[in-house]
């Protein structure tokens, strides 16, 4: 009679231990790594990504121009390349944010009901 009572908490503990180990190795989305939700962060992120690309392009072009004496041609070329790099940065960031949001929504749908405090 007392045996199932003694076994149950142990089984439960085993299960929880296994879960914890899986979480450590498998890399599932834990609640602790969740970002505070705000649209301000992504906006700033995308903005600096664009500007940084253009800035690096312009600096490379300007330095090469001074070095090779080809003012203003390389500056123009690298300005365009830098703009393209900036836009590439923005697209990558935006795609990352979008896929994160999608994964977040799905994981939320999966564990509806068992809400835990963050």
């Amino acid at each position: 009679m007392s045996e199932p009572n003694g076994q149950e908490p142990l089984d439960d503990l085993n299960k929880r231990l296994k879960d914890a180990r899986n979480r450590k190795t498998a890399g599932t989305r834990g609640k602790n790594g969740a970002a505070p939700r705000s649209d301000y962060g992504p906006a700033i992120r995308v903005g600096t990504d664009l500007v940084a690309g253009v800035a690096v392009g312009v600096v490379i072009g300007w330095v090469l121009d001074r070095w090779l004496g080809t003012t203003p041609w390389l500056l123009l070329v690298f300005f365009l390349l830098g703009s393209a790099a900036g836009i590439t940065n923005v697209m990558r960031t935006a795609m990352k944010i979008e896929s994160d949001a999608k994964a977040d929504r799905e994981s939320k749908r999966n564990d509806v009901g068992k809400n835990e405090a963050p």
């Binding site: 700033i44 992120r45 600096t48 990504d49 500007v51 940084a52 690309g53 800035a55 690096v56 392009g57 490379i60 690298f78 390349l81 830098g82 393209a84 790099a85 900036g86 590439t88 940065n89």
Partner: peptide, 18 residues
């Protein structure tokens, strides 16, 4: 390739400027 290299070089800039 130049676009990718510039994009890579822009990482520390955007990380610090942000």
């Amino acid at each position: 390739i130049p676009i990718e290299v510039i994009s890579y070089l822009s990482r520390p800039i955007s990380l610090s400027v942000r």
